[in-house]
């Protein structure tokens, strides 16, 4: 076989190969990668910037339902309600206030209503040093006990901020204590986590050590 025939043979076989490939692509002989299951969209409410609760100050500012802040529709003026305690020295909530969860401080150490509420003016607050405060000024009351946290809040590193880091360009929105913490049960509430990453293939999860086991 001389060089010319070799060239012809090579060219013909190349043509056959390429045509085969083309036919292969056309008819999908090798099979395309199976399309991955589509990932459901996350509900838009996970990206909202609302606080977890509405503080009294916010309620008054936005003109919401403030009936819960008007103590003297039920209570009598100059006649502070008497607090009942059970045998464990815990407050027995009257049925009008049953919705409260009394869990301020560990070991139920701070559950006396008048630790914070002013018994002479139920619509206001009273710090331990005798300063009378409005219900909207609760942050100062919290700060009277939680000094380090209050200091952090004052400089802006505790609590939520939004708006402009560059104060020259725009305002900043700060939140008070009760926008995130329920004063009767101040531990930040848990919530359902938003969906985690969707792996392409099932991932073996690392063995989860028990908490406390190092």
């Amino acid at each position: 076989m001389d060089a010319e025939s070799k060239t012809t043979v090579v060219l013909i076989s190349l043509a056959v190969t390429f045509l085969g490939l083309r036919a292969g692509f056309q008819d999908d002989w090798w099979g395309q990668v199976a399309p991955l299951p589509s990932i459901p969209l996350v509900e838009p409410d996970v990206t909202n910037t609302a606080t977890v609760r509405v503080s009294a100050a916010e309620l008054l500012r936005t003109g919401g339902d403030t009936s819960g802040l008007e103590c003297y529709t039920c209570h009598e003026k100059d006649k502070p309600p008497k607090i009942k305690f059970d045998t464990n020295n815990l407050v027995v909530l009257p049925k009008e206030h049953e919705d409260l969860v009394m869990r301020h401080g560990q070991h139920q150490r701070n559950v006396n209503c008048y630790n914070c509420h002013n018994q002479r003016n139920l619509e206001g607050l009273l710090t331990r040093d005798g300063t009378e405060l409005k219900i909207t000024d609760s942050t100062r009351l919290c700060g009277s006990c939680h000094g380090p946290t209050y200091r952090d809040w004052e400089v802006g590193i505790h609590g939520r901020t939004s708006g402009y880091w560059d104060r020259a360009r725009g305002p900043i929105t700060r939140q008070g204590c009760t926008s995130c913490h329920d004063p009767h049960n101040p531990v930040f509430p848990g919530r359902k986590p938003t969906p985690g990453p969707h792996p392409l293939h099932p991932v073996p999860r690392p063995p989860q050590p028990e908490p406390g086991e190092h």
Partner: peptide, 8 residues
């Protein structure tokens, strides 16, 4: 991510 963080 900062603005949406519920805990700050």
């Amino acid at each position: 991510c900062l603005e949406v963080c519920p805990t700050g």
